[in-house]
């Protein structure tokens, strides 16, 4: 498990040097929020049934851009062979890549979520703790299945096209449950009103993490 930390450190060092993933994630998320804000009327308060969708549209699509980069460095010069030749377990590679993806998502969310509340004139006070819970539940499920799918598609030509095609059908239940609970939260509902969506998101997190963790070795190694 200690070796997973070395991979995280290496990936973050490369990212903070090149800023490829984070810059494209932030720029894309910013663009989505601003364009939809213009479309819905600048400064006007958007109905909670719509704003939950806008928030997650910006986050999910920008997260896919980050996901696209997490195996990119391993593919240049076949560095993935270097990892697989070392005594590190494939599960540690999975945990490291998932952690890197989580870190990218959290950094993007720390900037995009406050921007969303400013642009869409939404009240954040009192809702922040529960919003953090919803965001983290989505992040866990997204980054675990995303890491697996990214590893699958990283060896494929036209990877940037294949990744969303493979990823979104799997993620639809998780995204739907997250959007539902966010919409209720932003509409001022109590936790009892959307707790079933939170449980559903948590259940998908467990399924996605468990299956991705177990399948990763078969995906990353050649047959």
């Amino acid at each position: 498990m200690k070796q997973a930390w070395f991979i995280i450190k290496k990936d973050l060092m490369i990212e903070f040097r090149k800023k490829e993933a984070l810059m494209s994630m932030l720029f894309f998320g910013f663009l989505v929020l601003v364009i939809l804000n213009i479309a819905t009327g600048i400064g006007s308060k958007v109905a909670s049934s719509v704003s939950g969708g806008i928030l997650w549209l910006a986050i999910i699509f920008s997260a896919v851009l980050g996901l696209d980069r997490i195996f990119a460095h391993e593919n240049e010069n076949r560095c993935i062979d270097g990892l697989l030749l070392s005594p590190i377990e494939p599960e540690s590679i999975f945990l490291a890549k998932m952690a890197v993806n989580l870190i990218f998502m959290i950094i993007a969310e720390v900037i995009l979520i406050p921007l969303f509340f400013i642009l869409y004139n939404n009240e954040i006070s009192g809702r922040l703790p529960m919003l953090i819970v919803i965001v983290m539940l989505l992040n866990l499920g997204f980054s675990s299945v995303g890491t697996l799918v990214s590893a699958m598609s990283s060896g494929i030509k036209k990877n940037d096209m294949m990744l969303p095609i493979l990823l979104f059908p799997v993620l639809i239940p998780l995204i739907a449950a997250t959007v539902k609970s966010t919409t209720e939260l932003l509409g001022g509902a109590g936790v009892a009103k959307y707790s079933q969506w939170l449980y559903l998101t948590g259940a998908f997190d467990l399924i996605f993490f468990g299956s991705s963790y177990l399948l990763f070795e078969h995906v990353i190694k050649e047959g």
């Binding site: 490369i14 040097r17 010069n77």
Partner: peptide, 17 residues
Amino acid sequence: RKSVAVISHQSLLYNDL
């Protein structure tokens, strides 16, 4: 894996490090 090393026309090195 402990005993073997591979040198190929691919360097297995990270360009940005």
